[in-house]
């Protein structure tokens, strides 16, 4: 594992207020029935920035990732990814609702790793990693195989290339899922509580892999996690959420050592006591 402190060389300055945000949420509202999950949310993430979202369950953190991955639709506001909106597009000089083609084009820069891994059980590890590059990106099978080998090497599972997901532990499955997401060469990696479903002794392995990716690549990361030491290690910025709003944000050193808001203090206390 590379030992350099990720904070030494941030790939980008925090995006607040800047116009070069890679991801931008503008007044985004998400409701499930009467339950308001995101309440006129505004935030920006710069290219190469690593942002961790923390907060209690139900505070809307995962919803942010799901909206970005187009797994959910916002009820209001606009989400921009690299200058493209997820809700509308330009056609003939007019703004029209985004169609599937537009969404696929925006989505091509985003990858996601899920809490429950979601590997395809009908495929070996190799096919899990190579099918999308071959069929979606049009990469040759040989090239995809070679890349799969490299990525499995990166996540420490080179010998499992022909194994079946059911033959792997949870931690191994999650590391394959990380390799699968990286195989699509995303600019943004969304990590949704990727260690929450793992036995405690398997968590470290997955976090080591992510630390390695954070320190050796300039990939933009949005990470929802309860692993506070990981958040402190890899993030450029931490956002504390509660009830669909950002309560506090700042560099990890400040958020974890000198939180300004009482809500952040009580949340961190509860998590760290856990």
């Amino acid at each position: 594992m590379q030992q350099s402190d990720p904070h030494d060389q941030p790939a980008a300055e925090p995006a607040d207020g800047s116009d070069d945000a890679y991801i931008r949420f503008e007044q985004v509202v998400k409701r499930y029935g009467d339950n308001v999950v995101l309440d006129h949310l505004d935030f920006r993430v710069a290219e190469g920035e690593r942002v961790t979202l923390i907060g209690p369950s139900g505070s809307g953190k995962t919803t942010i990732l799901r909206l970005l991955m187009t797994l959910e639709k916002a009820n209001g506001g606009v989400i921009w990814v690299n200058g493209d909106s997820l809700s509308h597009m330009r056609r003939g000089g007019k703004l029209v609702p985004a169609d599937e083609k537009h969404l696929r084009s925006v989505r091509s820069s985003i990858g996601m790793v899920f809490q429950q891994f979601n590997l395809f059980p009908n495929m070996t590890v190799r096919r899990n990693i190579t099918e999308a590059p071959v069929h979606v990106l049009g990469v040759s099978q040989d090239e995809a195989d070679q890349r799969a080998g490299e990525l499995l090497e990166l996540v420490g599972l080179a010998e499992k290339i022909d194994a079946h997901p059911t033959q792997l532990s949870g931690g191994q499955q999650q590391r394959v899922a990380i390799a699968r997401a990286l195989a699509m060469r995303p600019k943004v990696l969304l990590l949704d509580e990727v260690t929450s479903a793992l036995d405690p002794e398997l968590v470290a392995g997955v976090l080591d892999v992510l630390r390695n990716i954070a320190t050796t690549t300039d990939i933009t990361m949005l990470c929802v996690t309860h692993e506070m030491s990981f958040a402190r290690d890899v993030s450029h910025r931490v956002l504390m959420f509660d009830q669909g709003r950002i309560v506090e944000e700042g560099p990890p050193a400040q958020i974890f050592s000198e939180p300004r808001e009482e809500r952040t203090r009580s949340f961190l206390q509860a998590v760290l006591e856990d």
Binding site: G156, G170, A204, G205, V209
Partner: peptide, 12 residues
Amino acid sequence: AAPEPAAASAGG
């Protein structure tokens, strides 16, 4: 599923 040998084989 073979049990993972602790977190030792963790990658990276």
